[in-house]
């Protein structure tokens, strides 16, 4: 990697093999370079290459095959004139907003509750986290069954005599997004709870002692002292939950398959359907590029903040 500067070398060259041979420069770390090939190829070909390819072809009119002519922003214009796409985007925004706020606040709340020297804490934790181990397909199918209007929870409670009980969100186009939310929260809050609990436990005991000595009630300590100290954990959780929301796909496929009608469509499903079912690749690529832009809007400021924070420190 580093070469001796020439003037220093020349001076002592006669005293032995003073200069690093060209062969050594090439073979130095050779094994390491060979071992890094999979990573280098993945980065260059997949993460950079495929992404650029997708962005490029999103400006073509490719249909069944990616061979189309350059058409500028036509695919994007079409995209935002398609009601299914617009519904997908608004679904994602609503689902995303609710999911983010509820996952974080419920996750934090559960973590605080579990932090109260609760008996059987590990049992509670295990129960709250197990859905996270399951596939979104499994989650979606279970809730699909529970929300079945005739034989699921609604039917059961009506049969038991509670005639007015309504839980048919899965069949209502204006409510189906909340059905998704219930299943999504079921799967995801446990994970956030574990992150938050870890964050709570990482806070110095002395903070608690100091707060107690100062006579600050526990809830105020949590809200005004501990919560601000957990900024890092929160940021992590927001990024992770946020990235997951943008990718929301399997759950929708299993729970509602986008229905009723197009009421629960999401962007990831739009991309898949146009790419592999409708045979309109240009359109699919434009949609996926929009997904990329969305993720960048979430990630870049965060990365910038973290990066900025780091360089300040060093």
């Amino acid at each position: 990697m580093t070469q001796a500067t020439s003037s220093d070398e020349v001076r002592y060259q006669d005293e032995g093999k003073a200069r690093r041979s060209l062969g050594r420069v090439l073979t130095h770390n050779l094994s390491a370079k060979i071992a890094a090939t999979p990573m280098v190829v993945t980065v260059l070909v997949v993460f950079i290459g495929c992404t650029l390819w997708t962005i490029w072809y999103s400006f073509t009119d490719s249909r069944l095959l990616p061979t189309g002519d350059f058409v500028g922003f036509e695919q994007y214009e079409r995209l935002f004139n398609t009601s299914r796409w617009n519904r997908s985007v608004s679904n994602l925004i609503w689902y995303g907003a609710f999911s983010l706020v509820l996952t974080l606040s419920l996750g934090f709340l559960l973590a605080v509750l579990l932090d109260q020297k609760v008996r059987f804490e590990s049992a509670f934790r295990t129960i709250m986290l197990y859905p996270f181990a399951l596939s979104f397909i499994v989650t979606g199918l279970v809730w699909q069954w529970i929300m079945n209007p005739t034989l699921g929870l609604q039917g059961t409670l009506r049969n038991m005599g509670w005639e007015s009980f309504t839980f048919d969100w899965i069949a209502q186009s204006d409510m189906v997004i909340y059905a998704l939310l219930i299943a999504g929260l079921w799967q995801g809050t446990g994970f956030v709870m574990v992150l938050m609990l870890a964050g709570l436990r990482s806070i110095d005991d002395d903070i608690w002692k100091a707060a107690r000595v100062d006579g600050i009630p526990a809830w105020r300590t949590y809200l005004f002292i501990v919560l601000p100290m957990m900024r890092g954990v929160f940021v992590t959780a927001v990024v992770l939950v946020g990235a997951g929301i943008v990718r929301l796909y399997d759950l929708v496929v299993a729970l509602t398959n986008g229905g009723p009608g197009i009421a629960s469509e999401v962007p990831a499903k739009y991309v898949y359907d146009y790419m592999f079912t409708a045979g309109n690749i240009g359109q699919a690529l434009a949609a996926s590029t929009m997904m990329l832009v969305t993720v960048m809007i979430i990630i870049v400021p965060w990365a910038y903040l973290e990066f900025g924070g780091r360089s300040k420190k060093s």
Binding site: A4, T5, D8, Y12, G16, K17, A18, R19, R24
Partner: peptide, 17 residues
């Protein structure tokens, strides 16, 4: 560590690299 400049001799042998 790879040095940026200069030489190291051990027992009379240049071992810099």
């Amino acid at each position: 560590l790879d040095v940026t400049g200069g030489q190291i001799f051990i027992s009379g042998k240049n071992v810099t690299w």
